[in-house]
C-alpha cells in the first residue's frame, strides 16, 4: 500500500474512505501549505485556508477528471480558497501606488541567495492587496486581466499593485541581506 496511484487515491476519496483521504492529505498537504503561506499573513491563517481547501477537495473530488494533473487540480482549489478567504472577509485593501516610483525600483535580484522561508516571510509581510496580486501573478502565472476578474479590480490596479509588491519585496529582501552580511562582518 506504499505506492498508491493518484487514480486509486481519487477513487478512495470518492468512496469517502478515510484511509485514502488521509493518504491524499499526506501526499499534498505540505506543498499546498507552502502555497497557502504565500497568500496569508502567517502560518495560522495558512493552515485555516488549507483546512478549508481540503474539505472542498474531498467534497468535490468526484468532479476531478483524471485527464488533468491531480496536483494542478488541488492547487487550483487551494488558490481559489485562498482568494475567497480574503474576499469573503473583505479584508483586501489596495493602497494607492505611485507607478513611477515603483518602476524606478525594479531591478535585478538574485533569489538563490535567499532561503525560501525568508522569501515567504517577505511575501507574507506585504500589504494584503499587493500580496494577493503578486502571488497570483508571479507564482500562479495569472494575467492581470484574470487577476482583475478574480479580485474584482481593474487591470491597472492589478499592475500597479504588482509593481508595488515587487518593489517592497526587493526592499525587504535587500534589507534582510544587508542585516545578515553585517552580522558576519
Amino acid at each position: 500500500m506504499t505506492n498508491i496511484s493518484d487514480i486509486e487515491l481519487v477513487q478512495g476519496c470518492v468512496d469517502q474512505n478515510r484511509f485514502y483521504q488521509k493518504k491524499l492529505y499526506e501526499r499534498f498537504a505540505r506543498k499546498m501549505l507552502g502555497v497557502c503561506m504565500s497568500y496569508s499573513r502567517d502560518t495560522y491563517e495558512a493552515e485555516n485556508i488549507l483546512q478549508e481547501s481540503f474539505i472542498k477537495i474531498f467534497e468535490n473530488i468526484k468532479r476531478y477528471q483524471p485527464t488533468g494533473s491531480l496536483e494542478g487540480w488541488i492547487r487550483r482549489i487551494v488558490v481559489n480558497t485562498a482568494t475567497d478567504y480574503y474576499r469573503k472577509k473583505k479584508r483586501i485593501k489596495f493602497s494607492e501606488v505611485n507607478l513611477e516610483d515603483a518602476e524606478y525600483m525594479i531591478g535585478d535580484l538574485d533569489l538563490d541567495s535567499f532561503a525560501v522561508r525568508d522569501i515567504i516571510k517577505a511575501v507574507q509581510e506585504l500589504p494584503e492587496g499587493s500580496r494577493m496580486v503578486f502571488t497570483l501573478y508571479a507564482i500562479e502565472g495569472y494575467t492581470h486581466k484574470e487577476i482583475g476578474e478574480t479580485l474584482d479590480i481593474s487591470v491597472g490596479t492589478s499592475k500597479s499593485q504588482f509593481s508595488r509588491a515587487r518593489m517592497l519585496l526587493q526592499e525587504k529582501l535587500k534589507r534582510n541581506e544587508q542585516r545578515e552580511s553585517k552580522r558576519f562582518l
Partner: peptide, 23 residues
C-alpha cells in the same frame, strides 16, 4: 524573477501542524 520565485516557492514544503488532519 517570477520563474525563479515560482521554483523556490514550489520547492517549499513546510512542516504541518499535528492537529491539522484531526481538524
Amino acid at each position: 524573477f517570477n520563474k525563479k520565485l515560482r521554483e523556490r516557492i514550489d520547492s517549499f514544503e513546510p512542516e504541518l501542524s499535528d492537529s491539522l488532519w484531526d481538524r
